[in-house]
Structure formats: structure tokens, C-alpha cells
Design a protein around this nucleic acid. Structure first.
Lengths: 233, 233
DNA sequence: TGCTAGAATTAGGCTGGCATAATTTCTAGT
DNA sequence: ACTAGAAATTATGCCAGCCTAATTCTAGCA
């Protein structure tokens, strides 16, 4: 009956909502210039779109202050996040995509697939909770696990942790991580941390032949969960 | 290196090329009004797009006469056809889609997937030559089997044939065909044909309990291949 | 308090892709 | 050969989304 399939936000709008969601969950609110940066669009164009989005009730806009998703906007953003992550999972699991090449494909597909197809892909995979980059997949009802991650750069020396989420945008970075053996789920302990934003030395899986040094910027981008000692998710 | 991934025709242009291909292979050339009808777009809009397409070398336009694909245009159209049919095959084979529901999903996905993904899906299915509706799938190099189909409505009484291709656009029609047992590959003999565009009576698989009557218009839309007697593809 | 750098917005323009109304061209029938 | 009706095109206009240039606001600092 009442299909309402995708009365459908445009591709552009979907990208804006995704970007705003990301920025909001990082820094509380999304500024025009940050959105522009994220989407590689000129700031005035963002101003224009922001006006339209707030007129259609997807965001709240305090002029000159920033932007926040309404609950409708957040619902759409989480739906896009689910799409993206289910697609990435499916492409890697079933079609042999690599860790680092899957993002671009998902970025295009997420705007084209139906909710039905997403559910079929998720079901085929056994409804996974995490995507291959370790990011939690929102449920079809729009719930997302709120993990309290700690950047690798802030784990104290001697601390044990497991790598959670690595991001999926930069494929060269992902290839490098893979070459270090750093994939989501990998457990490690921090052996040393140099001051002045220096590198972090870690031991992978307690294997002393697998000590690796990770630069500060990279370590800061690796979201980890602290663990007591041994153990698996 | 030279990626050239999809410098990319717009979604609209891809749809125009597909429509022109279809019309051209039915009637030799595509008229403005026929394209407009096919795409549900007003004729003047088609005129405008036709101008742009011929400027970019995808079609040849004889004003007031009609339109034909150039070899570049044909290549793109066949690529879209391949995409569409591979996607339909994959969705049915691997994700449990129905015969009649798969078209709409493919219609959106075909504009978003990469050539790489298409090849992965095709490989996963064993590079099928026909889609689930019996239509030949163009190869990655743009070759397509040219079958000489005969409409069911023109098979002489007593003739044996196998159903080839049924089209994929009208899902109610597809459901009805399935209820008659008429899926691509089904063999049958023509028992009777009424004059004055009357219905055709057929016997499915030589099974006398499976005689069915097919209306003229429907029979005319069912593309069949004549066969000697028994035998399977 | 007043000033200024930087962020944001408004003003004005462009392209793609659609529409309707008006006009032109083709074609078929007398 | 002429002309009516169909088909196609041109003339305009609209909206989504982007741009650059000009302007306005905000906040931090002297």
C-alpha cells in the first residue's frame, strides 16, 4: 500500500546529512565551513543548502552559529550510515572486495539501493553488528551502538586494548595499517609512548616478534577499546 | 593508471541511450516522440537532450527524421544493458528477489555500480549468458547475441518452440506469466490459433494437462525460438 | 570599548534537466 | 499541387546545485 519507498532525498541531501552527522558526533555541532570542507563544496553553496534543509525540517540552523540534525534528519543520516556499512560488509564478504577499495563503491551504491535490498544483504550476512572497518552498523530501526573509544595515542604505557574502528576513507592509509597487521579486532599492548606527539610502540597480540611503531597522527585516528588482559569480543 | 572509471554520462543520458537502443532495435530508428513516450518526458525536453547527445557524439540526429546511436553511443547502451541484466541475475540468484520485483531495483543500481562490481557479480554467477527473463546479456566487450526470435502469436499451429525472452518491465504481467508456467526456457507446442487477433492455445512441455490459452497481445510480446521437436538449451 | 580577522551570508550567475506554449516542418490524402 | 494534422523544434521559464564576488556578522584582543 502506502509505499513511501524513497520519496527520496536527493543524493546531495543525503551526503549533507551524512557529513553533518559525522561532524556533529565529533564536535557537537557542524559549522558551515566544516561541512564545506567535508563535502568539498564552496561555503556559500553550503549556506544555500542549509537553508533548504532547515526549511524541510531535517536540520536546525542557528545563523552564524551552526547546524544540528533534527530527529528526522538524524534518522535519515543513520539510515545512510547503515546503508554504507552494510554495503561495505557485503562487498567484502561476498564479492571479494579489499579493505581499502570498498569505500568508493559503497559511496555510490548507498544512494541507489532500496531499504529492501539493504535488509536482504544484511540478512545474507547474518545481520552483522560491525562493518569490516570495525564501525558499528546502525540497526534498521536507527539505533547505533555508542562506543566509548579511546584513541591509540592516549592509551597509557602498559595498557592493553583492542583496535576498534579505523575509518574507511583513505585507502592508502588502510593498506598501510593492514601491512602493520592492524585490523579491527586486533589486540595489542602499548610498550612505549614518546612525548611531544611522538610515535607509539605497540606489541601485537602479545607476540614479541610483532612490535610495531605507529606515528602520532595515525595513532590518534585509531579508535580502541581498553581491555583487562586477554580476551576476545 | 589511466582510470577513466566513469567520466560518466549522467543518469539521464544513460537512460536516453538505453531507450534509443531499444527503439532502434525494434524499429530501426528512434523518433523524438517515441523516446519521450519511453522515458515519460515531454517531447521538447527530448529535443533538447537529443541536441546535446549528438553534440557529444553519442547519437546521429537527422532533424525531423529521427535518431540513431553512433558506435560510441551503442557501446554505452550495451554497457547499460549488461549492467541491468547482470544486476537482475545477481539479485535473483543471490539475494532472493522475485522475477517480477527485480526490475525496479536494477533500474536504479545500474547507474551506480562500477564496471568492476559488474564483473565481480558476473563472475560470481559463472558469467551467465542470459538473464532470468531470458534476455541475452551483452559481454563486457559489448557483444550481444542477436537472436532471431519469433513472437508466439506467429508460430504456426503444430509448431514447437521454446520461450526465449519475456521482457521485465511490467511486474503484474510477469506474475501472470509465471502463473501460467511460462518462464524463459519453457518449451511448448501451438495447438490452435484463432483468427482476427484471437488467442493462442499452447501445450506446455508436451503435457496435455498443461494446455493454456494466451491472449493475442500477450502472445505477440513473447519472443520464442522455434525448435525441431524435443530438446533443451 | 572599538577594531579586525575570519566565518557566514547574500547577490548574482551558470549548467543540467525538466516543463508549457508557440511555431515550424514534414507527410499524406484529396 | 495543396493543405490539414501530426511531429518536431524553438522560445521561455523553473528548480536543484553548484560557483565567485561582495557584504555582514561574530568574537577575540588591544
Amino acid at each position: 500500500m502506502n509505499e513511501l519507498a524513497r520519496p527520496s532525498l536527493s543524493r546531495s541531501i543525503e551526503d549533507y546529512l551524512k557529513a553533518i552527522y559525522r561532524l556533529e558526533s565529533e564536535s557537537g555541532a557542524a559549522q558551515t565551513s566544516a561541512i564545506a570542507e567535508e563535502l568539498d563544496i564552496a561555503p556559500p553553496s553550503v549556506s544555500g543548502m542549509v537553508k533548504r534543509l532547515s526549511e524541510s525540517g531535517l536540520i536546525e540552523h542557528l545563523p552564524y552559529r551552526g547546524v544540528q540534525l533534527t530527529s528526522a534528519g538524524r534518522r535519515e543520516a543513520l539510515n545512510m550510515l547503515r546503508r554504507h556499512r552494510v554495503i561495505e560488509s557485503y562487498l567484502m564478504e561476498r564479492l571479494g572486495y579489499d579493505w581499502d577499495s570498498v569505500h568508493d563503491e559503497a559511496e555510490r551504491l548507498e544512494h541507489a539501493v532500496s531499504d529492501d535490498l539493504i535488509e536482504r544483504m544484511a540478512r545474507a550476512l547474518g545481520n552483522p553488528q560491525y562493518d569490516p572497518h570495525g564501525a558499528p552498523i546502525p540497526t534498521a530501526t536507527g539505533d547505533i551502538e555508542e562506543l566509548s573509544y579511546v584513541p591509540m595515542s592516549e592509551i597509557p604505557v602498559g595498557g592493553a586494548a583492542r583496535l576498534g574502528s579505523v575509518g574507511d576513507k583513505d585507502s592508502a592509509r588502510l593498506r598501510f595499517l593492514a601491512s602493520l597487521g592492524l585490523v579491527p579486532g586486533t589486540s595489542f599492548t602499548v610498550l612505549a609512548r614518546q612525548p611531544f606527539n611522538g610515535p607509539v610502540t605497540i606489541r601485537l597480540r602479545g607476540d614479541e616478534r610483532r612490535d610495531e611503531v605507529v606515528g602520532f597522527d595515525l595513532a590518534r585516528s585509531l579508535q580502541c577499546t581498553l581491555v583487562e588482559q586477554e580476551g576476545d569480543r
